[in-house]
């Protein structure tokens, strides 16, 4: 479970990026977080990943206070979360397979474990036939799926995607959303951040709206 308690985030002297945010996301939920550009969505994901620290208030994930994490414990916390970057952050000189394997190797997984697991993940994102291609030979949607596969590599409990449809066309956007819903069925909690309100409404999932750093609406837990 993820819990934000009175979370405020300030960057320097400007208006707070997030102010007094209270949120609860249960395990296994699928949540959209929407809001206009500059609303504080990316800040929220950075706080969750403990890339940034809260200025005041606390975030608890599975009962652990993120403020308590240190240089040595933070990496192990991060393995619980699969993060999908808005700009994919794929490595151009690595194949699809190697891009996914990279994440597993980075946490010290054995060669054998990698060889066994990567093909399974590539099947989930429907890229098993493109495993030896380089990112430059893939469409935007396919690149996004590689990024998703990499986020899944270490079997995280949570998946967080920041604007997963920001760089791809509407048809592919739908496919990505469908895929994220499918991933939720793999017993994961999925948080999708987007500014595309219209796209979100078709799925009937929980939607949290933030504006100027405040939570302005929350449809509450869906089905």
């Amino acid at each position: 479970m993820i819990e934000f308690r009175n979370v405020t985030k300030l960057y320097g002297q400007s208006a707070p990026a997030l102010e007094n945010v209270n949120l609860k996301i249960e395990s296994g939920e699928f949540v959209f977080i929407i809001g206009e550009s500059g609303a504080g969505k990316t800040t929220l994901t950075k706080l969750l990943l403990r890339e940034e620290k809260t200025s005041s208030g606390d975030i608890y994930v599975d009962g652990k206070r993120l403020r308590r994490l240190n240089f040595f414990t933070l990496p192990y916390y991060r393995r619980k979360i699969g993060f999908v970057f808005q700009d994919f952050r794929l490595f151009e000189k690595m194949t699809v397979y190697e891009n996914v394997a990279f994440a597993m190797r980075a946490v010290g997984q054995s060669r054998r474990a990698i060889a066994k697991k990567v093909p399974l993940i590539l099947r989930v994102v429907e890229l098993e036939d493109k495993r030896d291609r380089f990112p430059s030979a893939l469409s935007g949607g396919e690149q996004q799926r590689v990024a998703l596969a990499r986020a899944l590599a270490n079997n995280p409990k949570y998946i967080i995607a920041d604007e997963p449809t920001g760089n791809i066309d509407p048809q592919r956007s739908l496919e990505i959303m469908e895929m994220l819903l499918k991933i939720r069925e793999m017993n994961k909690t999925v948080i999708v951040v987007t500014h595309e309100k219209a796209l979100v409404e078709r799925f009937g999932q929980r939607v949290i709206t933030i504006s100027k750093g405040h939570v302005v609406s929350d449809t509450g837990k869906s089905s």
């Binding site: 991060r78 393995r79 699969g82 993060f83 952050r89 490595f91 010290g108 990499r150 270490n154």
Partner: peptide
């Protein structure tokens, strides 16, 4: 990327 996926 290493830091985000939890490399020590």
């Amino acid at each position: 990327v290493m830091r985000y996926v939890g490399a020590t």
